[in-house]
Design a protein around this nucleic acid. Structure first.
Lengths: 328, 328
DNA sequence: CTGAAAGCGCTAACAC
DNA sequence: GTGTTAGCGCTTTCAG
């Protein structure tokens, strides 16, 4: 790899001049400039970003923490973040945390040592204490981590409420809820939204709420038990689509017809919901948009350390598909 | 952030000594060592990896190119690569290329400027010329790019053959194939495997092969047309699972029963195939394993520049699920 | 066993 | 307009 010195030598100028044309910084005679540019292309010279980073203390890298990229909610988020990141000439680092605080701390340290410029975090385990020593801008995405961090989330409670009300409106009389892992902030909000609607119904039982941990297999399992214990249930609101599909699988394995015997609504709006038969009704998040927005806000923070904390909430939207049906 | 100088000052030694204890390099008196370690922890000092990289010319970063992480085949691959990468203290960079050669070249240059240590590439567009100037180790994954690159792939042709034979064995008499994008090496191999089995059948028609571009919506569309033109088709081998699920969706929308009227087999073995009803029979790849192996081989190349090119092929395995059924 | 100093490649004062 | 030079933070000869 050619260095700036090689270019300077070939163009018969000093390295400072080369640096000037490289960064279009300060005055440089058009003729010299041309000579330098020729040398650059002759040598196929590319500036060394590591050296630049060392000088500037910034690396032009942004990292995203997700629990597990294999969970189908995250690829779209990751894609959005990468796109924005890339548009702004940052390099995109992906970290799978498994929601394991040990791994998260290890990543946090490693990234800081690499001078990453900012981090976007989806986590249920990180809290204020873990990040107070970190002097890199951090944005919370999908779930809130700490009151003093900028965040991009969706209207979880309102959306959950709307989903549950929808089930009621189409005629469901016993509505159960498969919730996510207890420690995630969005699990709590979605559960609240559900309870807002059903807690005063005389049929409501606390055993209508079971945890599926945002996980397909777990959701299948708990739904089978739920439906065996409570055959009267005719509507299920799953806190995410992966579990919604699990609920469908469980119902079908029990010989129930969806939506005739059981209506199902999910949350998230991932592509998976379109592939099943019947396809899954859901409260769709603008997943790509929230990922992209988080990246934009992060970049604002990077460019302006004094920027005030921002909290943005995107609304979710009902998408009626085939897993729900008006009953008479 | 504290620097090595601060540590040196506090421990009353030179930076060289600090460096020595940092890297357990050369002799250093146990007492001094302890003093240095105390200073390190007192200052909560972490070495600056950028400075290290500049000196060493290596960045401890590995990149993975995928066409699009939103395609459900790639998250598992990415996860595997990230896990191995992480175990070896590398940072994982993810690049979505959209199989766009322009983007790929841009990434290649940007990564080289950042001194990435190695790149794993899934691509249908990159070829020998594009990478001959790159002096960073590169491994091809899933698809072969160039004869002189190490690669990790699966037995595409054999697997396709087995899938098609399986359909024949269970009694399908008219077997069609939904293939991938023409330029991908694995599309070609899977198509060949299919043809190996059917080309001499007297019922075989070239219009039994249609391209679904490895894409769900496209597969739905072309399958509908195929099934309308050729209602006699009673078995379909889709070149990947995403298309397999699309085929199922198409068949169901046409009122066909799967597997009674139409048996479907996919390729890949992604989790999606388990969620549908009926679940999808498939030729499963050891996706995680090939991703992990590619990362391991890459690291071998990084550690030994003279390492000979390796080409590893993993075998695929039939997983019978509900979308295929023996017919009488 | 430890320190001084050169240098990785680049940028940004500061001179001229 | 252009060159000289001092670092950015670290590692590694080379002395001692």
């Amino acid at each position: 790899m050619a260095t700036i010195k090689d270019v300077a030598k070939l163009a018969q100028v000093s390295v400072a001049t080369v640096s000037r044309v490289l960064n279009s910084n300060g005055y440089v005679n058009p003729t010299t400039k041309e000579r330098v540019n020729k040398a650059i292309s002759d040598l196929n010279y590319r500036p060394n970003d590591v050296a630049r980073s060392l000088f500037k203390g910034r690396s032009k890298m942004i990292a995203l923490f997700v629990p597990d990229i294999m969970n189908p909610y995250f690829p779209e988020l990751a894609r959005a973040v990468e796109d924005v990141t890339n548009q702004h000439d940052y390099t995109f680092v992906l970290c799978n945390t498994d929601d394991d605080i040990e791994k998260e701390i290890t990543y946090l340290n490693a990234l800081q040592q690499k001078s990453v410029d900012g981090i976007i975090i989806v986590s249920s385990t990180i809290n204020k204490e873990h990040i107070q020593h970190i002097n890199v801008p951090i944005i919370a995405l999908d779930r809130i981590l700490s009151s003093d961090l900028s965040s991009v989330t969706v209207t979880n409670r309102e959306g959950a409420k709307e989903a549950t009300e929808y089930l009621k409106e189409i005629g469901c009389e016993r509505i159960a809820h498969i919730c996510g892992p207890e420690n995630a902030s969005n699990t709590v909000q979605r559960l609240r939204g559900y309870l807002d609607v059903v807690k005063d119904e005389d049929w409501f039982l606390s055993s209508y709420v079971v945890s599926g941990g945002y996980n397909f297999d777990k959701a299948v399992e708990v739904t089978i038990n739920l439906l065996k214990d409570h055959p009267e249930v005719d509507g299920i609101f799953a806190a995410n689509d992966v579990m919604g599909v699990g609920v469908m699988k469980a119902a079908q394995s029990l010989g129930l017809r969806v939506p005739e015997d059981l209506s199902i609504i999910g949350f998230d709006g991932i592509a998976l919901g379109k592939t099943t038969s019947p396809s899954l009704t859901t409260m769709a998040q603008p997943i790509y948009d929230i990922g992209a927005r988080a990246a934009e806000i992060l970049i604002e923070h990077i460019n302006d350390k004094e920027l005030l904390r921002k909290r943005e909430e995107f609304t979710v939207k009902l998408i009626e598909r085939e897993s729900t049906k008006v009953r008479r």
